[in-house]
């Protein structure tokens, strides 16, 4: 992605937001929707976009694993839950048994270690024996991993709702340019952006990153030049585990760490369809569109038809995309030469 590219997208996004606002304004003028207010619209948009970053964080984990191994990892949601549970659990454990208040940074580092162990275990116990099996088998295996990790995490750390306190403001708001935004959401968006930038650099410019992309393209050829698939898979699952941890912290810090965290994976699905399964920028843009789209639909159109659009709006959007652009916005074009 060149700077010019990003600029074009930013301008395009702004224009689109204004255009959709204008559309709603028009609808309000002719009386199809009962209420429209520009400043409220911008607030809703901002909230939606910030929410979207959170979706992107979850989708990112899927993209990483799909890119490197062609596996649709259904278990990503449970990894989010497991990571967040482990982090809170570790903090509680230290406080209860040793009387130490573990700083969240330390807890984070410990949890990263745990996620790496989980990645190694998954590679050893599930992926390695199933290598060369058709994708559907691996997909089924990840469903198995989902339920196992889900249950195991709760058996280990308990199933009550936990509070994850990393000292972030939950309720305060700021109003740059007159648009009220939640500080927590802003910080989460910042963290998400930093994570994506970091991953982008890692993939593009490091030896391991290059090897990861090589494996994603043609794992036989990667094997033939001496890239060890097992190591690469372990790295990818570890990175996906860390991404899950960050997503878990952001979601868990906001709504508490609880079972429903595992289900946000389902919200990541339409994001992936929109953005493309193989693209990191796609996961971001897809998340933003879904977050923004569902908030705006809920607050303006939902009012007219009795609400609750939010839950299914994303899927309708995804369906439309499937019909017209099955590889997603940024999905890798399948290179075909004649």
């Amino acid at each position: 992605m060149k700077p010019l590219h990003i600029l074009t997208w930013l301008v395009g996004a702004l224009v689109t937001i204004f255009a959709i606002g204008g559309l709603h304004w028009g609808l309000a003028q002719i009386g199809w929707i009962s209420f429209f207010d520009w400043s409220f619209y911008f607030e809703v948009s901002a909230a939606g976009l910030l929410q979207g970053v959170m979706y992107s964080l979850v989708a990112l984990g899927f993209v990483l694993i799909f890119k490197a191994s062609g596996i649709f990892n259904f278990a990503q949601g449970s990894l989010v839950l497991f990571a967040a549970l482990t982090m809170v659990g570790l903090m509680e454990l230290f406080e209860r048994d040793f009387g130490i208040r573990l700083h969240w940074v330390l807890a984070f580092i410990l949890t990263v270690g745990v996620m790496v162990l989980v990645a190694i275990a998954i590679e050893r116990l599930v992926l390695r024996p199933l290598v060369n099996q058709p994708p559907i088998i691996l997909f089924m295996a990840t469903i198995g991993i989902f339920y196992f990790v889900d249950g195991f995490g709760q058996a280990l750390w308990g199933s009550d709702v936990k509070v994850l306190d990393i000292g972030m403001p939950i309720a305060s708001a700021v109003s740059p340019l007159g648009v009220r935004m939640n500080v927590y959401d802003l910080i989460a968006a910042g963290v998400g952006a930093a994570l994506v930038a970091g991953l982008g650099v890692f993939f593009q410019y490091t030896r391991i990153g290059r090897a990861l992309r090589a494996v994603a393209d043609d794992h036989q050829a990667a094997l033939s030049v001496g890239i060890p698939l097992k190591t690469i898979w372990t790295i990818v699952w570890s990175v996906a585990g860390v991404v899950a941890l960050v997503a878990g912290i952001m979601w868990g810090g906001k709504a508490g760490v609880q079972f429903s965290l595992a289900l946000i994976a389902l919200k990541a699905l339409p994001v992936l369809i929109l953005g493309g399964f193989t693209s990191i920028p796609g996961a971001i843009v897809g998340g933003l569109i879904i977050g923004y789209g569902e908030q705006v639909a809920e607050n303006f159109i939902g009012l007219e038809i009795g609400g609750a659009i939010q839950d299914w709006f994303a899927y309708v959007l995804a369906l439309v995309f499937l019909l017209f652009r099955p590889q997603g916005l940024f999905g890798e074009r399948i290179i075909e030469r004649v």
Binding site: A214, D218, S224, V225, G226
Partner: peptide
């Protein structure tokens, strides 16, 4: 000992130079 596989098997989405660099992985 390295094999150049039948049908070339380049990494399609990597540039030519990146392809060459993957050969130096080990």
């Amino acid at each position: 000992v390295i094999q150049v596989m039948e049908g070339r098997h380049c990494f399609e989405h990597l540039t030519v130079e990146e392809n060459l660099l993957t050969g130096a992985y080990t």
